[in-house]
Each structure stands twice: as structure tokens, then as C-alpha cells.
Design a protein around this nucleic acid. Sequence first.
RNA 1: GGGGGUGUGGCAGAGUGGUCUAAUGCACCAGACUGUAAAUCUGGCGGGCUUGCCCUUCGGUGGUUCAAAUCCAUCCGCCCCCA
Length: 377
Amino acid sequence: MKCGSYRLIKKSFQCKARLGRVYTARGVIDTPVFMPVGTQGTVKGVATEYLKSSGAQIILANSYHLYLRPGTEIIKKAGGIQKFNSWNKPMLTDSGGFQIFSLNDIRKLSEEGAEFRSHIDGSAHFFSPESSMRIQKDIGADIIMCFDECTPYPAEYKYAKESMELSLRWAKRCKTEFYKDNAFETQALFGIIQGSVYDDLRKQSALEMTDMDFTGYAIGGVSVGEPKEEKEKVIEIVEPLLPENKARYLMGVGMPEDLWEGVERGIDMFDCVIPTRNGRNGQVFTSRGKLNIRNAEFREDFSPLDPECNCPACKGYSKAYLNHLVRAQESLYLSLLSLHNIYFMVNLMSKIRKSLENDTFLEAKKEFFDKYYKRQS
RNA sequence: GGGGGUGUGGCAGAGUGGUCUAAUGCACCAGACUGUAAAUCUGGCGGGCUUGCCCUUCGGUGGUUCAAAUCCAUCCGCCCCCA
């Protein structure tokens, strides 16, 4: 089976949701799937063995960050990123395209690529579609992404159009570079659809990207500050234009509610820093909504974070204790809360897949939302 | 016994006649975070309401002054040095 290929197992009769599988040399991924983000080759605060225990199937890493440190040579020598961090399972790397957005102040964009001033030491580093491909090949992720510009939000139509078209031209260059050798036997290249919140731009991007025939397709340029409705509309515009036999990946999403909305609209893959970042900031996701464990109401709450969760934090510790760890700035909470949130997202996706098997997706979604928002209302 | 210093909001600590409900930090109370420059950032933190004002605060009391955390007197507490 070609790396990164998608097999559709079942389509929901209720909505666009799909149950499927993505094949890679390092394992099969059941979709819909949530992919934890490990920018620097590590999911922040979570030891690999715990990450495995969560049931996570694939994790991300970032080209820009790993290229700067430790450098691709070391990762190559280590035998690839999966061996380097001892994950030994499927990984996906982002191309550096998101850094064009997030490191806006320390980069210069041109037709050729993007020059970054290293956030570590200020040195200049030029990223092009070609160099991004080489970096990602060296890092050795199973799925790699086209180098694109993650269009900021809000963006004027003119800017969004030029940005989207630039990403299209870059995608062509990525493809050429990627297929120069036989890397595609062990790696897959996904294209990224841009176009901000403009329907015609999204359609044009989707059409031209699919013409280029990538192994999978991502929707990028979302979750950059736009309202929830805009994000959902983007999926609705793009999804019908994507081939059924390829994976669809919604980049940078998201919150638990976003995962339901995304799956319902036909998305197979998600990634997000939310579980780890929010965990480090004390925010915890539970079946009864999100809460901030730092808050006073948990000082003497000796129950677990989520009675439905079987993660180490929930199995071993009370809210009161976790509250104490956060207040005392004890580093253990970083790990425990990040891990809990990853368990939550991974379990949520597993629940979603099960509901698709049973043809009860919409019922499961309603049940989830009723419970999840009860606390907040 | 002699000499010197000091007392400020939960804590530490600025301020030494009006611009002081009083800097700053911590603590405390909340909120945000979406392909990670984030264990970060933002707001609040005396009381009242008509949200602009009013009332009450800088150890106690009493003064000086148009005006006092700030000056004076006195009392109380604490600290240091010498005996």
C-alpha cells in the first residue's frame, strides 16, 4: 500500500463523516484521527511511553524548529525522527508554512520562499519549497506537507488571492522536488488548500491542488482567529471538491467541538497544540466541559478531573492535588494535565469512530455537546 | 540606662505636603490560548452606587495647614548599636 494512501471504510448516512484508514510504513491510522503536536520532536511535557498509552496513533513535528535545532543531520544520523524520539510510529511534519504566519515579524516573504531570522539566535535561514522538501525528507516523517503560506486572518481579498496563488506555485515546486527521488515510497506528500474565507479562492485552490494529484489534502489557513462559522463554511466549500479516496486533513484544529464539526463535514485528520498548551496553562478538557484546575473551586475537590477518563492524572490524582501542583508550580502538573488533555482528544476521536461504526454519529454528537456544555450554562 | 532607626493595602516594598486608593513584585480572583518564539498572556484585586462620582484607608490619638501616608506632639509596637 502506497504511503499515505487512504481507504474509505464507511460513509455516514447522516452527514459527510467518514470512517477510514491511512496507511504508512510505520503503521495504519484509523480515521478520523487527532494528532498531538510535538513541534520540537517531543509532545511538550509528555514522555513517549505515556503518549503511547493514550492511544495516539500519529504525532506532528515541525521542520522549521527541527532544522534550526538540533539540525537535520543529527536526526538523519539518529535514523529519522521516529527513532530519534523513540516514538517509532507514524509522524507528520509541517513544512514551516505556519511559521510564515506565526513568525510574521521575523521573516521576509518572496516568490522564491521565506527568509526567517532564527528566533533562537537571529541568524538568517532561507526556506523554499525545495529546501522544505529536503528538510522534511531528512527528518523522515511518514507524511510531509507542502511548503505554503498560512494566510493570516483577516486578509483582504487581494492579499488572500495572491497568497493562495503563491501557495499553489509553491505546491508545484514541492511536488517536483519531492518526486525527484524515491522518497515517496516511504513518505507521502500532502497538498494544502488556502484561500482564506473567500469561497471562490478556496474553490480555485481546491481545484488546482487536486489537479496536481497529491497523496492527501489539507485545509490550511484556518484557526488563525476567524469565527467558528467561517471555519466550518470553509470546510463545506472545499470538501465536495476533494477526492473521496484521499485523506482530508484540517490543519491546526482544534477544540473538542471543532473536532465534531470537522468530522461531520468530512474531515479525517486533525492536529492541534491545544491539549498540551492549554494543559500547561491549567485548562483541562472533560466530558462535562472545560475547566481551569487552578481555580479556587477545586482547592478541596478530591474527585478526579473526569470520572470517564482513564489517564494517569485521573487514575492517580484528585483535582485538589492537581490544583495544588499548579499553584505550587510543581513541574509534574505540566505533564499530567497535558497528558490528560491528549487522552481526552484521543478518546473523543475513538468515540467518534465508534459512533460512525454504529451509525449513531449525530446522536453521539448531541449527547457529547449536551453534557459538555451543561456545566457552562 | 544612653544613642539611633522604624512602623504603608494579605506579604514584601516604593512614596516623605496637593498630581495618593497609594508604584512595583508576590499572593489572591478570573479570563484567553486552535499546522507551538507560550509552564504564556490579559484583566481584576478597600466599600458603595446613578460607573462617574462619593465614602473609608498608610500603627493609635491629638494638632498644624486651604490641603497630611508625608510636618508637629504624644502614646503604642518593633529593630540596631553602646553600656
